[in-house]
């Protein structure tokens, strides 16, 4: 068993990490909370004063907030549906024996390693550009009117781009889960005459449930913070059509220099993210005991 001596050593080894993370979390968090109750604009230095709940009231009643909230939910929800359904189907396909499995796997996971600014710009220019993009050329061939994806359906286009980035992640995790499936159980079901659909529904899906939950929770954490993709494609526009909460707070703080309002928005974003985080932490915590 661990001795007194090694316990003290252990504590010493953990402390730098703990102290750094504590500072990293608490200092900015307290500042955000503090600023959120101040009237504080960087363009008017020295005019800071206590403002009570004014910032929150303004932020929450701003029509842009409701738009951004709805957009955030649509963005997160849309990408989650596409990636989990697509990822499950894709994992099911890739789990079958076929020639060149290793190479196809490499092709499928590649988008995950492309930096967000590159993938967004590639889709924006090389595919969605109504004149020179590949979709533009395709529409031209088919004799259709050119369609400007990012100005006519900005949010849907961004959902598409982000789904392309995250589909590999879902696929990879679900594929890993498939591979730990008990093959004998499947064979037994097949011998007993269970059709493919019920085998999927009653054996595979319950086995995948845990992995799917993890995919959904982890992606949600990242998807709530989508920023670069919006910045380089639409700038949140037209109007607020593709502004999510992260982008709205960014605009308020760094483009309008409204420290107080941006901070109030930040606190609201933290609360929203925490609701998801609680569920995720519970799942991971359970795994730690096992």
């Amino acid at each position: 068993m661990a001795t007194q001596h090694s316990r003290a050593a252990a504590r010493l080894m953990i402390s730098p990490a703990v102290l750094l993370l504590l500072g990293w979390m608490l200092i900015p968090l307290c500042m955000t909370l503090y600023f959120s109750f101040l009237r504080y604009n960087l363009l008017m230095p020295g005019m800071e004063e206590f403002a009570g709940w004014t910032n929150y009231r303004f932020f929450l009643t701003d029509p842009a907030f409701m738009d951004a909230l709805v957009n955030t939910l649509l963005l997160v929800g849309g990408v989650l549906v596409i990636t989990t359904v697509g990822g499950t189907l894709l994992a099911l396909l890739l789990d079958q024996p076929f020639w060149g499995q290793g190479i196809v796997r490499i092709l499928v996971i590649a988008p995950f390693f492309v930096m967000p600014t590159v993938s967004a710009l590639v889709w924006k220019n090389m595919f969605m550009n109504p004149v020179n993009g590949l979709f533009g050329h395709l529409f031209h061939w088919l004799g259709l009117q050119p369609y400007d994806f990012l100005s006519q359906a900005p949010l849907m286009s961004i959902i598409g781009i982000v789904s392309w980035q995250w589909l590999p992640f879902a696929t990879l995790i679900l594929l890993t889960a498939f591979q730990s499936l008990d093959q004998e159980q499947l064979e037994a079901a097949e011998m007993d005459g269970a059709p493919a659909l019920s085998r999927f529904w009653y054996i595979m899906l319950p086995h995948l449930a845990r992995a799917i939950t993890v995919v959904i929770l982890i992606q949600t954490i990242f998807l709530l913070s989508i920023f670069a993709e919006i910045l380089v494609t639409t700038n949140g526009g037209p109007g607020t059509a593709s502004t999510n909460l992260t982008y709205l707070i960014y605009m308020q703080s760094l483009l309008q220099f409204d420290v107080g309002g941006g901070s109030a928005g930040g606190v609201i974003a933290i609360i929203l993210a925490n609701i998801v985080a609680i569920f995720l932490m519970r799942m991971i915590g359970k795994n730690l005991d096992a």
Partner: peptide
């Protein structure tokens, strides 16, 4: 789990 935008200003 802390969203980065929550601490962007500070």
């Amino acid at each position: 789990m802390l969203p980065p935008v929550g601490v962007l200003v500070p």
